[in-house]
């Protein structure tokens, strides 16, 4: 949403152009992933009373499904699932950095603690995710995966005090939509991206203060 993280790379081995689309990040330029169904997942029960008792729904946006890699072929563009390649490759459970990779995903910015790729990606089915207890999780339910480690944020989210939203505070009057974890956080690099403030006050006579070392405390 904030930054396209697609790494465009020319490959001399494969077909003409491979646009490597990484993971399930909210990518601009990747329609399948970018468009989201507005569906209530199990996270809907985080917000009490949705859809019942004359109240409007709280909709949590979520990924449409597993990410795909678009490949241009002479017949046209085709979308390849992750499993297309990964099914024939041996998973490496010790990979914790993209630097160790010898092909693909090497330019993927990665900064998510010390976890390995397969902490989240399911080596048995690369079109799904996996919890630490080996439970398979669909991409659409990615928040469940996030929540297993980020309990504090998940708890806050559950109570409506983490994450952006829009619509109605009063659900008896109208619906509300809420962001998914991955709307704001790139799972591969979850720190919120830095931004440039675009709108600053233009008050008369307001100039930046000169701060010196001892300023403020005597």
């Amino acid at each position: 949403m904030f930054q396209a993280r697609s790494s465009n790379r020319m490959s001399d081995r494969w077909i003409l152009l491979i646009l490597v689309v990484c993971g399930f990040t909210p990518l601009s330029g990747c329609d399948e992933v970018g468009s989201r169904h507005e569906v209530n997942t199990e996270f809907a029960d985080f917000v009490g009373g949705t859809g019942s008792g004359g109240r409007f729904e709280v909709t949590i946006s979520r990924p449409a499904g597993p990410p795909v890699v678009r490949v241009a072929t002479p017949e046209g563009e085709v979308a390849l699932a992750c499993s297309t390649c990964h099914d024939v490759r041996t998973p490496n459970f010790s990979n914790t950095t993209t630097a160790d990779l010898d092909e693909f995903h090497r330019d993927l910015p990665f900064g998510h603690g010390s976890i390995s790729c397969l902490s989240c990606h399911n080596s048995d089915n690369y079109d799904t995710l996996r919890l630490a207890n080996q439970t398979t999780v669909e991409y659409t339910d990615v928040m469940t995966l996030c929540a297993q480690c980020h309990g504090q944020q998940a708890r806050s989210y559950e109570h409506g005090v983490h994450g952006g939203m829009s619509g109605y505070w009063d659900l008896t009057r109208g619906p509300r939509t809420r962001n998914n974890c991955v709307d704001c956080h790139d799972p591969h690099q979850p720190a919120f991206p830095r931004m440039k403030p675009t709108f600053k006050p233009r008050d008369r006579f307001l100039t930046p203060p000169e701060h010196d070392e001892e300023a403020g405390h005597d």
């Binding site: 904030f2 409506g160 005090v161 983490h162 994450g163 952006g164 939203m165 829009s166 619509g167 109605y168 505070w169 009063d170 008896t172 009057r173 109208g174 509300r176 962001n179 704001c184 919120f192 931004m195």
Partner: peptide
């Protein structure tokens, strides 16, 4: 009218409750 304030909806970080 039940709606959220404009500043809350605009917040990209979800800091506002």
């Amino acid at each position: 009218k039940g709606r959220l304030p404009a500043c809350l909806e605009a917040c990209p970080t979800g800091a506002r409750v």
